[in-house]
Amino acid sequence: MIAFDIVLTLGLLACAAMALTLRDRTASIAAFVVAGLLIALSWVRLAAPDVALAEAAIGAGVTGALFLRSARRIGPITGGPVGGMSASIAAALGAGGLSAALFWAFAGTSGPVPYPPLVAANLEASGVTNPVTAVLLNFRAWDTLLEIAVLAVALALVVMLGPAPVVPRALGELVLPFARIVVPLAILVAGHLLWQGATAPGGAFQAGAVLAGGMLALVLAGIGPAGERIVRGALLLGLAGLAVFVGAALAAEGLTGRFLGYPAGAEKAWIIAIEASLTLSIAATLCLLFTGPVRRPHQ
């Protein structure tokens, strides 16, 4: 399998290099998305299927869509390189030296010690059997709560900046049936990912991203109700995730005396309930980060 790893990483590096050097915006973004998918494959090879799912859905999917949206609005690549050929070569040498140093530093380390046995020993008490979900929603739930806060702040920021909203246009006869198949499937898959996250790869982030994909298919197909009230509802839904998570953390402290300490025996119920609300909130947030808020009247 080493041969496969080598081919995969070579392809990955080639795609990343294309994404960062091609002069044509669309081609560069396409290379970026392909690189994202190859990275998801790399995560599978590194025995991290949870990360792979999130990378494919968020890293390649949502980020790629965001880039495509902005590329259309910003226009072609402007401004030459900084400095001339010699500056570029100097930068290349510097970056090459740095990455060699990094490789030396990372490859010279001995690998994991304390965490895996600790996670294994406490997995029973965490309420779920997928160790990654146990880390994300129980052992280090505070990290995850703050991560949801990052999403919420990004949402507030994008709403404040008010980029031009994405206007759905008539996209032809095939998009409607496409959406009709994909949207219910997305909801189904999201629900499945969410539920399965407790025991197998999956969870709120992956489910939320898939759900966001379905919602975007709806928006782009121009189906369903649109307008200020829907966007406002999506905004509230996006923000609600953080409120629910903080509320749950405080409620848990009220019950057990420990911030984010779920009551014994009911951990799984708490985790699934938090994850379910996070899924909806993440989906709404990702969707709004793409479509933007309603254009404000004074602009």
Partner: peptide
């Protein structure tokens, strides 16, 4: 304060 009752390094 060990958040969630999980002691470092596992918890925060």
């Amino acid at each position: 304060t060990h958040l969630g009752g999980w002691e470092a390094p596992l918890g925060i």
